[in-house]
Each structure stands twice: as C-alpha cells, then as structure tokens.
C-alpha cells in the first residue's frame, strides 16, 4: 500500500478507498473572459511539493474533506474538515511514518 489518509470520520484508511478531488479553485466572476473561464476549467497548479487538496471517502463515509500532502513523497501532512478544523490523531502520526 502506498499511503494512508486520516478521514475525519473513519480514521486512517488506505488511499484506494478515497477519490482525489484536485486542489480547491476560485470560480471566476460571471464577467470573466473566455480565457479566464478556460484557465479555471482546465489549468492545474500541479505542484511538485506541498499542496492542499480535496479528497472524498468514496468507499466508506462519503465525506469530502481537505488534505495537505507532499506530492513528491505522498506524505500526508495534515487533514482538515472543510470548515477548517484540523484532524489530529495518533493514527495520523502512523500515516506519516508509512509514507516515508
């Protein structure tokens, strides 16, 4: 298994239980140009390093939440409910270790 993610409801579960939802993006105003809309739709930050992303617990509780992850190592640094409250548990420490 490559890495685990700490779901706010279910705790640490293997990554294949989840669906990756990309990084949060700011929807343009309706007055935006066609090019701005296209950039919003298609461009991705595609960071090689730390980024915050949406994840969805597809195979279990169906929660969407936020994960801060290093895309070079898949190390999960933090998980947050979408209202911003951080989830920290003993298990998430373990998740960090297993990603190293």
């Amino acid at each position: 298994m490559s890495f685990q993610i700490d779901c706010p409801n279910c705790g640490c579960r293997p990554v294949w239980e989840y669906h990756y939802g990309g990084t949060p993006r700011q929807r343009p105003e309706s007055s935006a140009t066609e090019r701005q809309w296209a950039e919003y739709l298609y461009n991705r930050p595609n960071i090689a390093g730390e980024q915050t992303e949406w994840w969805y617990h597809r195979s279990a509780c169906k929660l969407w939440f936020l994960v801060r992850r290093d895309t070079r190592t898949n190390q999960v640094l933090e998980t947050k409910r979408f209202d911003g409250t951080a989830v920290t548990s003993e298990k998430s420490e373990k998740a960090v270790q297993s990603a190293e």
Partner: peptide, 13 residues
Amino acid sequence: DDHASYSLRGTLS
C-alpha cells in the same frame, strides 16, 4: 493512479 503525484513508487493495490 487516481491522485496527482510525482512519486515513482508502485503499489500492491
């Protein structure tokens, strides 16, 4: 793989 990544590790799944 479903998620974006620069890691070259393979997985059992």
